[in-house]
């Protein structure tokens, strides 16, 4: 049933080519994201996004950029519009206004399949796994939907298991029998199988102990540093999230109210003011 598979739609972007647009130093592009003359096209560029549910406006005139290899953290209280912004960026929710470019190009159809083909992956909020499928079935589904050739699938899985070796212990178990941390690990691994150049993570720390979250963040930081994957992290767990971020955006009531370096928010009072 090939009809259900994602149609590759981005000849410009090759998700298998991790070096394309990647920054071996990990954060230098992030250090000067405005340096457009030297840097390659922005990994993500959203301009004037507005979105809502029914008549309720959730996002208002939101613009953001994410450079290749950059770590960007999006924080804000519940209902600030962070998750909606990620859903819009990943094509899961249609914006009422605005434009999104991926690696400098507006996709013909801004759908999850097209974004996947362009090298963008999303780790959704909650546990992004199917409880009755085994871990290997979930991986197989991800590889199939990304159109990865059969001969390459085992190598992709090995690659991800090298990054998240603990998954090897439970590849044959159904996801529903795993702990929250293990499920989140599988969800992240699933997204990494497509070898994304941009990884969107929606509150991966929810329901996890701080130590577990640190264990999850560490390979993500490594991925950024070693492979130049751009990270857009929506998180409530500010301290750990800042550790992998070059830039922070604070949202309130669907609008961006602060954008700057994490160091600028190191003063706890200022952070509390913004929240």
């Amino acid at each position: 049933m090939t009809g259900a598979k994602a149609e590759p739609s981005s000849p410009a972007a090759n998700p298998q080519d991790l070096s394309a647009g990647a920054n071996p130093q990990g954060s230098s592009a992030a250090a000067n994201p405005q340096d457009a003359a030297a840097a390659p096209a922005l990994a993500l560029e959203a301009t004037g996004l507005a979105a809502g549910y029914g008549g309720r406006e959730v996002l208002q005139d939101v613009s953001l950029t994410l450079a290749p290899g950059e770590g960007l953290c999006l924080i804000g209280h519940n209902g600030a519009g962070k998750s909606t912004l990620l859903r819009v960026l990943f094509g899961l929710h249609r914006p009422a206004a605005g434009e999104i470019k991926v690696f400098g190009r507006k996709l013909a159809a801004h759908t999850p399949a097209a974004l996947g083909a362009a090298g963008v992956a999303l780790v959704p909020e909650g546990r992004g796994v199917f409880p009755d499928l085994t871990v290997l079935e979930i991986f197989g589904l991800a590889l199939w939907s990304a159109g990865v050739p059969k001969g390459e699938r085992a190598a992709r899985i090995d690659d991800v298991l090298e990054l998240l070796p603990r998954i090897k212990e439970f590849t044959k178990r159904t996801a529903g029998t795993l702990s929250g941390g293990q499920q989140q690990m599988v969800s992240i691994a699933r997204a990494l199988l497509t070898r994304p150049k941009v990884l969107l993570l929606d509150e991966p720390s929810i329901g996890l102990a701080p130590k577990l979250f640190q264990d999850l963040i560490e390979p993500i930081a490594r991925l950024r540093a070693e492979r130049g994957v751009a990270i857009l992290l929506v998180e409530q767990n500010v301290r750990e999230a800042f550790a992998v971020s070059d830039r922070v955006i604070v949202m309130r009531s669907g609008q961006m109210i602060f954008e700057g370096a994490p160091a600028e928010l190191s003063d706890h009072t200022k952070l509390m003011e913004l929240f």
């Binding site: 049933m1 009809g3 259900a4 999850p112 996947g116 992004g128 499928l133 589904l141 199939w144």
Partner: peptide, 25 residues
């Protein structure tokens, strides 16, 4: 793969979209 995708559809059609699959197909 299509069969596994059908089982996934039964469990969480929204999540399937995040995997880049078309739940309508």
């Amino acid at each position: 793969n299509a069969g596994v995708a059908l089982r996934a559809l039964a469990q969480n059609p929204d999540l399937l979209r995040a995997y880049g699959l078309s739940s309508s197909r």
